Simulated scan of single mutants.
Amino acid sequence: MPEAREAWRKSSFCGNETECVEVALGGGRVRARDSTDQAGAELAFSAAAWRAFIAAVVCGELEVS
């Protein structure tokens, strides 16, 4: 766990309040969680891995529902 907690931000693509993703940026990494279960599990990615994931989504390489 980081010493100082990064601020969580909700996805701008959140269409309804029950299916949202939040991300926190800092320390060279990106953390992601389900906004409806803030005490639940988090996924952590390196900044480079997160950029590659976002690029794949934007380019249509991944199916997004």
Rank of each mutant, 00 (worst) to 15 (best):
D37F: 02
S12W: 02
A4I: 12
A7D: 11
Q38I: 01
V57T: 02
W8L: 03
S12K: 12
N16A: 05
S11C: 06
G60C: 06
A52R: 14
V23N: 02
E6S: 15
D34V: 02
L43D: 11
R31N: 14
L25Y: 12
L62V: 15
N16G: 13
G26C: 01
A55Q: 09
R9L: 14
C59M: 04
E63D: 13
E3F: 05
S35I: 06
F13P: 02
R33N: 07
E19C: 03
E22C: 05
T36K: 15
R31P: 04
A44Q: 15
A24M: 09
A24Y: 03
G15H: 03
G26R: 03
V23L: 08
R51G: 09
S12D: 08
L62W: 05
V64N: 07
A7M: 10
S11N: 08
A4L: 05
R29M: 06
N16C: 01
T36R: 15
W50F: 13
A41W: 04
G28R: 11
R9Q: 15
V21R: 01
S35C: 08
P2L: 09
L25S: 02
R29N: 08
A56N: 11
W50I: 09
L25M: 12
A39S: 12
F45R: 09
S12G: 10
C20I: 10
R33G: 06
R5G: 08
G27V: 03
R51F: 00
L62G: 04
A39W: 03
E22I: 07
G60S: 09
V23F: 00
A24I: 13
A48P: 01
F53H: 11
A32R: 01
C14P: 03
A32G: 11
G60D: 04
A32S: 14
A44G: 04
W8R: 06
V30K: 02
A48G: 14
M1W: 00
E22N: 02
P2W: 00
W8V: 13
L43A: 11
A24T: 01
E61T: 00
C14V: 12
